[in-house]
Design a protein around this nucleic acid. Structure first.
Ligand SMILES: [Zn+2]
Ligand SMILES: [Zn+2]
Ligand SMILES: [Zn+2]
Ligand SMILES: [Zn+2]
Lengths: 136, 136
DNA sequence: CGCAATCTCGTTATGAGATAACGTCACACA
DNA sequence: TGTGTGACGTTATCTCATAACGAGATTGCG
């Protein structure tokens, strides 16, 4: 276990269970929703979920959506968890799309640089209606 | 009152009090912190704060910081509340800087357009250390 | 081996953020 | 006069998140 890329085998039981719930879900889940889904697996308290989520976010396998207080499995291929990611969140169907754009990242870095701001983490969340929901 | 630009005179008593608390503050405040500060002015329940905040945000006088669950008075000159605004939030001193960048806004609009995503609202929050705090 | 450091886990209780639901009051305006 | 609308106050409740404590398992070292 010298690798820093976290695969399924690296995860503890609780982490795997939480990861599974998020992967199965079509959209983001709140910690308490995950808790409810995992009661049959022995989950009893919020902390069991939050502790697993903390690690999964740290590993870059899960992202937290600040504007939703919810969590989503990373579906952005090649996402290392440190990228500048933008989320498009459909307010009708709840689906989340994860996009990484270099121009966007550069622009933000530039703005931070101009202000001598030591950038650690960026949150970009776009709210709106997705293509599918507009059609219907 | 036919104007749509909201000045101090437009605000109700509660809205003025909440706006005052936010304007006096150097950084963002949580709803409950505002509540505590306004107890002497007759505030008793969270809803009094949240109702005022809802309106102030609607008027564009106050912004909500999603990653902080807190609110900050708009200090961006000419901000109409509909702009695409990025917030730089210092994790050491708590100060918030509000910046509006056209290139950034255009890039986001472009990305949304590419995905046929009907963009309604964008949240951009940069976390890091401000210039002042780096120096010290 | 003996022992400390670290990590995961379970549990209980509590803190922090936000809203539902109900009724009151003042005001505008037909 | 009556009727709608919007702000307000209060209570209760809901959702989100963490503090604090202790039990096992694991690792690495003297
Ligand atoms: Zn990702
Ligand atoms: Zn949709
Ligand atoms: Zn502003
Ligand atoms: Zn600072």
């Amino acid at each position: 276990m010298s690798d820093h890329v976290h695969e399924a085998a690296d995860l503890t039981k609780n982490q795997s269970l939480v990861m599974g719930a998020l992967t199965r879900s079509k959209g983001p889940l709140s910690a308490y929703t995950i808790l409810d889904q995992l009661r049959d697996n022995g989950f009893r308290a919020p902390l069991q979920v939050y502790r697993a989520l903390d690690k999964l976010v740290e590993f870059g396998l899960v992202h937290r959506l600040e504007s939703l207080n919810a969590f989503v499995a990373c579906r952005h291929p090649g996402c290392d968890g440190d990228d500048t990611i933008a989320f498009m969140i459909c307010e009708r169907c709840g689906q989340v799309n994860e996009i990484s754009d270099n121009d966007l990242a550069l622009r933000l870095k530039h703005l931070a640089g101009e202000a001598s701001f030591a950038l650690k983490k960026t949150t970009i969340e776009l709210r709106g209606i997705c293509r599918t929901c507009q059609a219907s």
